[in-house]
Amino acid sequence: MSLTKSNKKFKWALDFNPKSRTSASDLPSPPGYSQSTNANYTESSKETDSNLLLIKKLWDVALGPLKQVPMNLFIMYMAGNSISIFPIMMVGMLIVRPIKALFSTQSTFKMVEGTQAAGQKFVYFIGNVVNILLALYKCQSMGLLPTHSSDWLAFEEPLTRVEHIGGGISMI
């Protein structure tokens, strides 16, 4: 179609839109107009945007435990290795929180019904496990884990004997 137009040119004929295309391209776009977007695109992007947000939120949630790791490390460092009420409270918190979080994984990811968030869940799980391991490490360094034979000494049965003796200095 364009080819015929360029070939056939009448004298008197007014070309009302001679450089319609070119001029349009030369002119600056009206404010707010973006070349890369059109009606159709905006429509679809609206849909994908909320999706993205959701995913972003999911990642937010999933990465939460991992983000706590530096903080936890700091807390652990601050708590010290002595066994007193505050360090114990802190260690207890460190160990209880990830476990709680693990148990409530389903409810945490409930907002994305239908969506498969396996990756996020996995990352979330890994993060919590890392936290638990950290807490266990802390327990270990505080000597709270019964990992040695000395920790089980108290549970041993009292000594029994085969022979019974009596006697002393001669009474005569």
């Binding site: 085969v162 022979e163 019974h164 003796i165 009596g166 006697g167 002393g168 200095i169 001669s170």
Partner: peptide, 8 residues
Amino acid sequence: DMYLYVAE
């Protein structure tokens, strides 16, 4: 199983 010792 009874034993007695006597010391002088």
